[in-house]
Design a protein around this nucleic acid. Structure first.
Length: 581
RNA sequence: GACCCCGUAGCUCAGCAGGAUAGAGCGCAGGAUUCCUAAUCCUGAGGCCAUGAGUUCGAAUCUCAUCGGGGUCACCA
């Protein structure tokens, strides 16, 4: 049950009754939310102000007319018009108790919604080049994309999680050659890795596997044939490596889409270019060199250009390189056309900061290939600076000695890594301090939230100890007399729980998983705060050995807090331990 | 030269399809344990929301300019 959505609907209905001429557009702008200052009430709406202008009326008049309609509502104890035309509601206690009941009844589905209306959305994330293990730079986008996909699925979208394997470029040839060296090494040769090759020792086992499979026979084959065999093997090995890195963070994709399958005679790129040409979205022309600094090897030539400027980009984009091969962007247009033809009218791409210049081009491509039917949201994850005790952590460039994703996860754990990365807006650069992330204090929001969850268990353990006869089964809690939860502290906590559905829905539609992380922190804080009140006031304790009715009701409340914490942590992919050790 | 992101408390950051007195943590000063894991809680000090203009009933939030910080800039992927 989402009280905010419920009242938004009631307010809209009331307005339609008052002003039949009102437009849906105006109604859609109505927001019902908790007022910034809780002293103003439980709910606040801007409805009168939003609607007044198109109606040509005074907002305060609309507000008071609207408020009058709610005066008789049994769910509402007070309605006030405030400021320029806000309407503030205070809700009757039974409404909050209903919320509590609905949490127990809905369990893991409390917060689930259908704002996505079953629409298919393709969320593409990670898409790291398969040339080695994942390093920290990839981690943020991986976690962000994964959480966003979960959030959208929970909010009623039909989500496909996709990984685009860039396995077609020249870097893959270099990878194959690098692997070839490791193969020779496995055969006993002393090798030297030339600059520009991949030096990482993660290729050593691939070389050995090649030896096991082929013996020395690859050396006797023509180079092209050998390299082609090596390429297949190493790509598979690298993708295994990447998948296992991702698995450490509990990240899994539904579709791994290979760029290679787009290439080739009569492939998707060919077909796409043909199609673009038929649609007059391509022409032969010249580009101006970029102003300011002209690249040294600038070559003024006539080339095949996509009319990106017709779709909001700054400049038309080349599709064919001077050596005749397709550009990366040509493949990407084909790829996004492929997504569209697979039935995705909504796409989300999660990219690193170094791709920010790519965004308008990608949007242009999607707009073009779908004739404006599909939309794409590109979420850029800004850089993460690794810190150790407040000092930037130097990454050595020597021999692939970058900080690996698996190093970070091994060092601080998946939960802390995920939560910290999500506890920040994606479009702001962030520092990631190992020392802080490992620390188990309030400084570290992960433990703060997990501790709140663990505390819900310790309450139940305490009850089992102090009131051994008390029935704490789910059915007993469902039957609890929650009308006993009438103190201000109880209601405050329930109101915090009631926020959850609107937080999820807004986070999903804004594509901002960090809102979930911040909410969980607030809920944990509300729960910890309630706990401490029991120190002053015995009536507010969770466990009252001489009042089993009240204790049972409180346990129902604690159970609801636990449920919401679990629901949120699950969306973020963070575990909810019963005990912290 | 152009484009993208950021600039909010000493520090790290929320708040931004405009709304009522701008929030949290850390740090600082003081306090709280006969329910529970103090891994917690409470109180206080601390702000020209980078600067300047504009839009309007109303701007941290939208627009433009300026200044700072980061990222990117034909044919790499």
């Amino acid at each position: 049950m989402n009280v905010f959505a419920l009242f938004a609907a009631r307010v809209a209905d009331a307005l339609k009754g008052l002003y039949p001429s009102i437009t849906e557009e105006a109604l859609s702008r109505i927001v019902v939310e908790p007022p910034r200052d809780a002293a103003h009430g439980d709910l606040s709406t801007n409805a009168a102000m939003v609607v007044a202008k198109p109606l040509g009326k005074n907002p305060r008049d609309v507000a008071s007319a609207l408020a009058d309609l709610f005066k008789a509502d049994a769910d509402v104890t007070s309605v006030e018009v405030a400021g320029p035309g806000f309407i503030n509601f205070r809700l009757a206690t039974p409404v909050w108790h209903e919320v509590l009941k609905s949490i127990a009844a809905q369990g893991g589905d409390f917060g689930r919604s259908n704002v996505g209306m079953g629409e298919r959305v393709n969320v593409e994330y990670v898409s790291a080049n398969p040339t080695g293990p994942m390093h920290v730079g990839h981690t943020r986008g991986a976690v962000f994309g994964d959480a966003l996909a979960s959030l959208m699925a929970y909010s009623g979208y039909d989500v496909t999680r996709e990984y685009y394997i860039n396995d077609a470029g020249s870097q893959i040839d270099t990878l194959a050659r690098s692997t070839m060296l490791r193969y020779r090494e496995a055969l006993g040769e002393t090798i030297e890795i030339p600059p520009g090759f991949y030096p990482g020792d993660y290729l050593v086992p691939v070389g050995e596997a090649l030896k096991a499979e082929f013996g020395s026979s690859l050396l006797e084959k023509p180079e092209a044939e050998a390299l082609s065999l090596v390429k297949d093997r190493v790509l598979a090995a690298m993708m295994d490596l990447i998948r296992s890195d991702l698995a450490k963070l509990n990240i899994h994709h539904d579709v791994f889409f290979s760029e290679r399958q787009l290439h080739g005679q009569g492939g998707d790129i060919d077909l796409t270019l043909e199609w673009l040409r038929a649609e007059d979205m391509i022409y032969q022309g010249r580009l101006e060199p970029p102003k300011g600094k002209t690249p040294e090897d600038w070559e003024d030539r006539e080339q095949t250009l996509f009319r990106a400027t017709n779709y909001g980009d700054d400049v038309d984009r080349p599709l064919v390189k001077s050596n005749g091969a397709y550009t990366y962007f040509a493949a990407d247009i084909a790829y996004h056309r492929n997504k569209y033809l697979r039935g995705f009218n909504h796409m989300v791409n999660v990219l690193g900061a170094d791709h920010s210049g790519y965004v308008s081009r990608l949007k242009a491509a999607v707009k073009a290939v779908s004739h404006g039917e599909a939309d794409i949201d590109v979420r850029i994850c800004q850089l993460v600076r690794l810190m150790k005790n407040g000092e930037p952590f130097k990454m050595s460039k020597r021999s692939g000695d970058l900080v690996l994703l698996s190093d970070v996860v091994d060092e601080v754990g998946s939960d802390a890594t995920r939560f910290m990365l999500l506890y920040r807006r994606n479009d702001a650069a962030m520092d990631f301090d190992f020392a802080v992330v490992k620390e188990q204090t309030r400084d570290n929001p992960v433990f703060y939230v997990q501790y709140a969850h663990a505390r819900t268990y310790s309450v139940f353990r305490k009850v089992a100890e102090e009131m051994p006869g008390l029935d704490t089964s789910a059915s007993a809690l469902a039957a609890a007399d929650i009308s006993l939860l009438s103190s201000e502290a109880d209601l405050e906590l329930i109101k915090a729980l009631a926020q959850w559905p609107r937080i999820v829905a807004s986070a999903a539609s804004a594509h901002e998983p960090h809102r979930v992380a911040f909410y969980l922190y607030e809920l944990a804080s509300a729960f910890h705060g309630f706990w401490a009140k029991g120190n002053q006031d015995v009536a507010l304790r969770f466990v009252n050995a001489d009042d089993s009715m009240l204790t049972t009701a409180r346990l129902a409340l604690v159970g609801a807090v636990r449920q919401v914490l679990v629901n949120g942590l699950t969306l973020l992919g963070v575990s909810a331990p019963e005990e912290l050790s």
